[in-house]
Simulated assay, not measured.
Amino acid sequence: MKLEKFTVGQIMSKCYILSENGKALIIDPGAEGEKIYNYLKENNLKLKYIINTHGHFDHIGANQFLKTKTDAKILAHPKANLKFEDPSLNLSTILKREEITSPALDRALKDGDSINFEGLNLEIITTPGHSEDGISIYLKEKAMLFSGDCIFANGIGRTDLVDSNFQDLKNSIEEKIFKLPAEVEFFAGHGPVSNLENFKTRVWPSFK
Rank of each mutant, 00 (worst) to 15 (best):
N81C: 04
K176C: 04
E20S: 10
K46Q: 14
I124V: 15
E85G: 11
I74N: 02
I135K: 00
S172L: 08
T68M: 02
F166P: 01
G22S: 08
R202L: 15
P87L: 13
I137E: 05
G134T: 02
S164L: 09
C150H: 01
A153S: 14
F65N: 01
L180W: 04
E197W: 04
N121E: 15
T201Q: 13
F152Y: 07
C15V: 11
C15G: 05
K110P: 02
A31G: 07
K200D: 15
S131K: 04
T201W: 15
N81W: 03
K176H: 03
F117N: 01
E123T: 00
F84N: 13
K73L: 15
E42N: 07
S131G: 11
I124E: 01
Y37Q: 04
I125T: 00
N154Y: 05
L45F: 10
D149M: 06
E174T: 10
S88R: 11
N81G: 10
K83G: 09
S114K: 13
R158A: 11
F199S: 14
N154T: 03
N21E: 14
T70K: 10
F207I: 13
D71R: 00
K79F: 13
S114C: 12
A80E: 04
E175A: 09
K41Y: 06
G9C: 05
D168Q: 08
N171Y: 11
N52F: 15
F84E: 08
A72K: 02
S131T: 13
S88H: 11
Q64Y: 14
E185H: 00
H59K: 03
E4A: 08
W204Q: 02
K48P: 12
I36D: 07
S172Y: 08
S102L: 10
A80W: 03
K2V: 15
S131A: 15
Q10H: 09
V8A: 05
E20Y: 12
D160I: 08
C15W: 03
G112N: 09
I60L: 11
V8G: 00
D111W: 11
D86L: 05
R97K: 13
F57R: 02
R97D: 14
D71N: 14
D160P: 06
D113Q: 08
S136M: 05
L180R: 03
T93L: 14
S164C: 07
N63P: 10
V8E: 02
G22N: 07
H190D: 10
S114M: 14
R202T: 12
T126V: 12
E132A: 10
I173P: 01
S136V: 03
I137C: 00
E132N: 14
S92V: 06
R202N: 14
L18Y: 11
V184P: 03
M144K: 13
G9N: 03
E85T: 11
H77M: 01
T126H: 05
L91I: 11
L3A: 11
L91R: 14
G33V: 07
G134N: 03
I17W: 05
K179R: 03
K200P: 12
I36H: 05
I177Y: 01
E20H: 15
L196E: 04
I115E: 06
R202S: 15
V193S: 02
S114P: 01
G155P: 07
L120M: 12
K41P: 02
L25Q: 10
V203K: 06
